[in-house]
């Protein structure tokens, strides 16, 4: 692990949605650790359960979904089974979250000031003036010019990138030990993406906060994360340091993901794509969920692959990992 202390340990987390059509196992046995000050990238396609993992940690899974099994240990305390008030006092305080679409996350009819001050006052008994100062400082910290004036503005008076900065400032207000960033750059221009990535990384270093960076974009996560967990159909199929995962992907799915990123070498060639679609999580057949789309799958894949540790610091769930580079 990167740090000596771990901020978050997730063990065997299962979050299922009990719909009329059946049980959707959105997260089905996910385990990982995030060290202090570490940035972990959680990568996967749409519907792989990465966002639900994030919402499970912060305790905001919408019904009919709920955490059915597992432990979420944050700063030494198991969050599974905490009551509503205990979870509320953690949210936005010790654990903060940033959402995907900055156009949607700020309430359009409330001033930035209202939305920031209430976040401070929800967790601290301080005078409103002091809360306002904290809000102004946080805006300055994320690089918003003339924060005093901007506090009086409404969200629609900000650009997308600026709004995401405001959302990050709100997340940082109470100095959380863990920030869950759910695709915070997906809805932004590439240039703004870079700025937000840089800003998030810098702020994590400055405040010592750990971060889970949820994304479907390997290129983004490669630039910011210390470690990467690749999710597929509700499970983590491969986990390791960013360098290991990018340079020596062992799971066929990870290899497929990396292979489908366009680069200078693939120019003019047909771009690789993983055949098929992500499987429906409703009534998923037992065995490796990726086998239908996998080029190396055989009958052994009908059995569930157990997590293995073929290399130091690596976790893999595959019967046929590609390990030739490492040998």
């Amino acid at each position: 692990m990167a740090g000596d202390e771990t901020t978050l340990t997730v063990e065997g987390l299962k979050t299922h949605f009990f719909t009329k059509a059946g049980v959707v196992k959105a997260v089905d046995g996910v385990s990982f650790e995030v060290g202090k000050g570490e940035i972990m990238g959680l990568v996967g396609e749409s519907g792989s359960g990465k966002s639900v993992t994030g919402f499970s940690i912060i305790g905001l899974v919408d019904p009919p979904g709920r955490v059915v099994e597992g432990r979420i240990i944050h700063d030494g305390r198991d969050l599974v089974g905490l009551d509503d008030e205990q979870m509320r006092s953690l949210r936005g305080n010790r654990i903060a979250m940033i959402f995907q679409d900055p156009m949607m996350t700020l309430n359009p009819v409330l001033r930035i000031e209202t939305q920031m001050v209430e976040a401070v006052l929800a967790h601290n008994t301080v005078p409103a003036a002091q809360a306002r100062e904290a809000a102004r400082d946080a805006l300055g910290q994320v690089g918003i010019p003339s924060p005093d004036e901007r506090l009086r503005a409404y969200p629609h008076q900000f650009s997308g990138g600026m709004r995401q900065r405001v959302a990050i400032a709100i997340a940082l207000l109470n100095r959380p030990s863990l920030i869950i960033a759910d695709e915070p750059t997906t809805a932004l221009d590439v240039t703004i993406q870079g700025q937000i990535l840089y800003e998030a990384q810098k702020l994590c270093r400055e405040t010592g906060a750990s971060m889970i960076w949820i994304t479907h974009d390997l290129a983004v996560v490669a630039g910011i994360a210390d470690r990467i967990s690749v999710m597929y159909a509700g499970r983590i199929v491969e986990q390791g340091t960013t360098a290991d995962i990018i340079d020596q992907p062992a799971h066929p799915y990870t290899r497929g993901l990396i292979g489908s990123v366009p680069s200078r070498n693939t120019r003019g060639d047909r771009l690789f794509q993983i055949p098929g679609m992500t499987p429906s999580l409703l009534n998923l057949a037992p065995g490796c969920a990726f086998r239908e789309r996998c080029s190396v799958a055989d009958d052994t894949c009908l059995a569930e692959p157990e997590p293995s540790h073929p290399l130091p610091g690596r976790v893999l769930r595959c019967h046929h990992p590609v390990l030739e580079v490492a040998q």
Partner: peptide, 26 residues
């Protein structure tokens, strides 16, 4: 189901404030 309601909850606001301020004004 809007993100701003979820975000308000993620800030740790009480359910009362989420409904009476964030939801009602909209």
């Amino acid at each position: 189901h809007q993100d701003y309601i979820k975000f308000a909850r993620a800030k740790g606001l009480s359910e009362t404030r989420v409904v009476l301020v964030h939801l009602l004004k909209n």
